[in-house]
Nucleic acid binder design. Structure first.
Ligand SMILES: [Mn+2]
Ligand SMILES: [Mn+2]
Ligand SMILES: [Mn+2]
Ligand SMILES: [Mn+2]
Lengths: 257, 257
DNA sequence: TAAGTATGTTAGGCAAGTCTAATAAATACT
DNA sequence: AGTATTTATTAGACTTGCCTAACATACTTA
């Protein structure tokens, strides 16, 4: 009877993998866990027993593995950390998908919620602040790929000019430009900024608890065929909303990329 | 005879600690290593034996511990990763010193040189690009500390105005404003941007190998009493230069903070 | 329904990393 | 110099996490 208060990196990975397998394939088989984690099947059995002892999975020999509520909470935490770190590396630092993914899966065990939250904040700030903005970030990525070429004194001048004209344009068009919409209207891949949360149901609370405020970024990940469960990503959290719930979230569309 | 090609997180930490102790106190005693790493003394002995087997430290029972050249290289790598991650968290993300330090020491084992380099690039870009700049970063930190207060629509306007006036000023004053100096002229704590590397000695090569280009940030960390060994930080690397060498590096001063 | 195959578990072993208790060496103090 | 104290090492044990080989169960299919 060992009472290890904190979860080891290894067990966090098992939890993460189980969660993702269940999400993707409806069921997490020992075989698949082993394959994903590049580990032998007996190792998986061992891990499942350890997780069961900690009441994070429901497990009995030869039976189906499911996550307990506590296990799901823990798994989601890991998944979020992984996602946030990966996104930051890919979108802000211009690291390649594969490397970002692998690195994120190692870093995810080291960062606190605090740091992750701040990272999300910063990435959003960088992507949406008119003084920086998507183009600016993209410029950094470009600069990186071009490496040492062009110490950017020249292009820096051009960059500022561009920024000035952009801001002027924005001012001329004024605030009314923002075609107001609700989350329900966005298509997969589209992103928007929260304008406000209509209606005060449990969704509002759930979302507010995540640190979402006016101006927060939200991205529609997937919309089910009938438009009902809408998967969104917000503050690094993955969320599944019903159509009516999504209709209660006013957003302003954001340009792609 | 075990040949583990890659160093474990644990051994990296021992190496890091030994390196820092030697730098600070001239000698790394088993007792101090144990204390810093919060580990028992026998554990240290074990680690030293493991490191000695890998030819990373010079070790014999009851003797002084020193790093072999290979060990020093490895240790410096770890120290740099730690420093870069910590700096990013403190300066860009506005995470507190203590938490940043602890987190950096866990993340340092997970990030590749590639990611660290990119992180340095990005932090420099963010701090020096006129469209972002130190004030802008600071604004983000401030926003974070103020938390949910002020979704920044208001202050965003003000921020842009400020940026515009700043850029205008910069233009009026023109390029001649940049009081050219050399690294030798900077005081501890001051930062500058590399203008060019005068003279083509080995220093130039050493520095160029680190990815330093025109525009790279450099910070003077410490200057010895007689002004001779000058400690600088550049691209996350720690470097010690002689006075003459520092005099060969043309920089433009950067405003504090 | 009776193989035959795929999947999962047990048994046994090993390496890394940590600990405590006991011992040895080095250093500091009369 | 001789004892006390500090510092370092050895011995032995334990935990975690991984492995291979052998066995058990579940699913497939003839
Ligand atoms: Mn992981
Ligand atoms: Mn992961
Ligand atoms: Mn560390
Ligand atoms: Mn460290």
């Amino acid at each position: 009877m060992t009472r290890t208060e904190t979860l080891s990196e290894s067990l966090e990975d098992y939890l993460e993998t189980i969660f993702l397998l269940i999400r993707e394939k409806a069921v997490a088989r020992s075989r698949d866990i082993a394959e994903r984690l590049k580990v032998s099947r007996p190792s998986v059995t061992g891990a499942l027993q350890a997780l069961a002892e900690r009441a994070l999975v429901n497990y009995e020999p030869y039976g189906h593995v499911t996550l307990t509520p506590a296990g799901e909470v823990e798994a989601k935490r890991v998944v979020r950390r992984h996602g946030v770190l990966k996104d930051f590396m890919v979108k802000v630092l211009s690291i390649g998908e594969a490397e970002a993914d692998a690195t994120a899966c190692r870093m995810e065990h080291a960062v606190s919620k605090n740091v992750v939250d701040r990272l999300v904040e910063f990435a959003e700030f960088v992507e949406t602040c008119p003084r920086a903005g998507a183009k600016w970030v993209h410029g950094f990525g470009y600069r990186c790929q071009e490496a040492a070429a062009d110490p950017s004194q020249q292009s820096c001048e051009r960059c500022i000019e561009q920024c000035l004209t952009d801001v002027k344009k924005r001012k001329q068009k004024g605030n009314k430009t923002i075609a107001s919409a609700t989350l329900k209207d966005l298509k997969p891949g589209e992103r928007g900024q929260i304008e406000r949360l209509l209606g005060g149901g449990p969704v509002k609370r759930r979302i507010a608890d995540m640190g979402v405020i006016k101006g927060s970024l939200v991205e529609v990940v997937r919309v089910a065929p009938l438009g009902d469960p809408i998967d969104i990503k917000i503050k690094g959290y993955h969320l599944s909303l019903r159509k009516e719930e999504a209709a209660g979230i006013a957003v302003s569309r954001l340009p792609e990329k």
